[in-house]
Computed example of a mutant assay.
Amino acid sequence: MSVPLSILDLAPIIAGGTAGDALHRTLDLARHAEQAGYARYWVAEHHFTPGVASSQPALLLGQIAAVTSRIRLGSGAVQTGHQTPLSIVEQFGLLDALYPGRFDLGLGRSGQRAKEAVKELATPPPPAEERVVDGLLIPKPFSFAPILASARSALFGKLLHLPGSQPPDFTEVLDQIEALLTGPVTDDDGNEARAVPGEGADLQIWLLGSSGGESAQVAGARGLPFAANYHVAPAKVLEAVEAYRAAFRPSATLAQPHIMVSADVVVAPDDATAREIAEPFGLWVHSIRTGAGAIPFPSPHQSAAHAWTPQQRDLVADRLATQFVGSPQTVATQLRTLQRVTGADELLVTTMTYDHTDRVRSFELLAKEWHG
């Protein structure tokens, strides 16, 4: 029996397109996803990226909820270092008040990661080699520390944070979110504060992580479901799920660990067509890996015209090698390997194509094959 299959959408802007185009395509894709039987539809939070329109998950999820009726909706993930716990609870409390019982509050700590990058650069981890674990490729790791420690990222931080503010510890953020959801919050003098809307909201909290670090460990220790990123950080996916399971303690939410693992996929009627559709992905990943931010997703013509150097190829090799591309049968087999090796209880797939019709068809073909 196949595990549930869900979608992560970045609302990609294509070359020559606009953010408005991208957001309308997201609404259309969400409707198709619901009809195809996907369990969840999550949207990302990315800032200052010319090729991604999903910068405000709660706002976008409200629009998606209005054009769907059953599929669970969520954030993959709200970046907790960029706003207060109260604002997060109020936003998702408002969504739950309007569309009760449909939302996953996925939380990430990217806002906190920037201040750790300098330490990573000073003491880089020992090099690791590519390996294959029971049929699943685990590539050499890629470090985002130089990008996170760059002057460009510092500018972004200034624009994302109030003057003089510092991202709080992740555990402190979670404490406040959980307290506001259960409410009221009180001080030593007995004064009360309530999140309205928000208190009592029927939200499922998820933590997302790309390594075996704080997110995985905190999710396990608090008995929360955990989403591990094979599509962003394929080298560390096994480390992430193992750390989560090792730290897991039963809670009122979960009696045992619950893991969702993500993957990049492109599906077409046959392997050759899928490879052709997926070709621009490498150029798009390269823009991210160089620290320039995701460019609008290239057209096949732009991709074909690009003259790759060996250094550029090496920069994106791990993401290309771990993207599942092919016919429905090919990709379903690869996803089942990912599920088996990681022990995932659910899978989360994301697809980038230049043509919206190709993207919708990719998800529909995969769902039909996956659900039999």
Rank of each mutant, 00 (worst) to 15 (best):
M1I: 10
L10Y: 15
L10P: 00
L10M: 13
A11N: 01
P12K: 09
I14M: 09
A15T: 12
G17M: 06
D21G: 04
L23D: 06
H24P: 01
A30T: 01
E34R: 06
Y38E: 03
A39L: 10
E45C: 09
H47S: 07
T49L: 08
P50H: 09
A53M: 00
S54R: 00
S55G: 10
Q63A: 15
A66C: 04
T68N: 09
R72C: 06
L73A: 05
S75W: 02
G76F: 12
L94Q: 12
A97C: 00
E116M: 13
V118H: 13
K119V: 08
P126N: 09
A128T: 09
K140A: 15
F142G: 04
A145H: 06
P146H: 10
S153V: 03
A154T: 13
F156S: 12
K158F: 03
H161G: 08
Q166S: 14
P167S: 12
P168V: 02
T171H: 10
E172H: 15
Q176R: 15
L180T: 03
T182R: 15
D188P: 00
E192Y: 06
R194L: 12
G198F: 02
G198T: 01
L208A: 14
G209S: 11
S211C: 05
V218Q: 14
G220W: 02
G223D: 12
N229L: 12
K236T: 13
K236F: 13
V237S: 04
E242Q: 12
Y244H: 04
A246V: 01
L254A: 08
M260E: 14
M260H: 01
S262T: 14
S262R: 04
I277Q: 08
A278G: 06
P280T: 10
F281S: 09
R289Q: 11
P298T: 07
S299D: 09
V316T: 13
V316H: 07
A317P: 00
D318L: 05
V325P: 05
V331W: 05
A344Q: 01
L347I: 05
H356E: 03
V360T: 11
R361G: 02
G372Q: 15
